[in-house]
């Protein structure tokens, strides 16, 4: 029975995902071209980023349902209008899609590793939308771009561990984005993910049935972290995530 579920999930998910992408991506291209003809570059980017979030929502919440369910809990509803820096732990290649949950009503970009940019089609769309490949740019460029985006009202999603956890622990954080947060005085929203580690596991594309939980904690406001060093701030946020993840896995 378990094997049947596994086969059913993977065949139906990937079939629907390919069909959905084959329809969605050309439509997105036409939509963006039309937007660009009548709107400014800034307005077009805003729409592109919003549409990508909706694409992620369908891919992770609708297509694999009900064998993969996403339980999203937001402890911060209606607290501010953003922009925010969303900081998440990282267990799986599905995590960037899961960011559609907290970002559904925001214009957001993600800070990604090199490999998402190498994905066919999706990599090009990510680049067009202004996603940042942190390993391919010096800190000065990263700092300039992230602070500019935040000042324009664009939220930023980061996985500051830099790579997926192999043992479900929360690794050490890289502090680059926290320096931008201090500079722009941006609220930081910790996101805690559990259950995604097998959806799919590292080194595989095979999805396992399961429940992914995402807890969005209350934003850490600048007034609360004013005076923190970047080192203290990143470890403070990391500890918030560690505590919540531990509670989620009890």
């Amino acid at each position: 029975m378990r094997l049947l579920k596994l086969i059913y999930l993977n065949i139906t998910f990937y079939a629907f995902y390919i069909i959905f992408s084959l329809v969605f991506i050309p439509l997105l291209t036409v939509f963006i071209v039309c937007c660009r003809l009548i709107l400014s570059h800034r307005q077009t980017m805003k729409r592109l980023r919003r549409v990508i979030v909706w694409y992620g929502t369908v891919a992770i919440r609708i297509l694999p349902f009900p064998l993969i369910r996403v339980e999203y809990k937001n402890y911060a509803r209606n607290e501010g209008r953003g922009p925010f820096i969303f900081v998440s732990n990282h267990r799986s290649s599905s995590d960037p899609f899961l960011m559609a949950c907290p970002c559904l009503f925001y214009e957001a970009i993600q800070v990604v590793n090199i490999w998402p940019f190498r994905l066919p089609v999706l990599g090009i769309i990510a680049k067009l939308a202004g996603y940042l490949s942190v390993r391919e740019m010096p800190f000065e460029d990263f700092f300039a771009k992230t602070t500019k985006l935040l000042r324009e009202g664009v939220s930023i999603v980061v996985f500051p561990e830099g790579t997926r956890s192999r043992d479900n622990s929360v690794g050490q954080f890289h502090g680059a984005i926290f320096r931008a947060a201090i500079e722009v005085k941006t609220p930081i929203v910790p996101l805690c993910i559990t259950g995604s580690e097998l959806i799919p596991p590292i080194g595989s594309m095979l999805l396992r049935p399961g429940v992914i939980k995402i807890h969005q904690l209350k934003p850490l406001l600048w007034e609360e972290y004013a005076g923190f060093s970047p080192f203290k701030l990143k470890n403070h946020v990391r500890q918030m995530i560690i505590n919540e993840v531990a509670a989620m896995e009890k």
Binding site: Q172, F173, A176
Partner: peptide, 14 residues
């Protein structure tokens, strides 16, 4: 200093 104390390349500059 990286894995146990949590410093990153930017912290090294500091």
């Amino acid at each position: 200093i990286f894995n146990d104390l949590g410093l990153d390349s930017l912290d090294i500059v500091d």
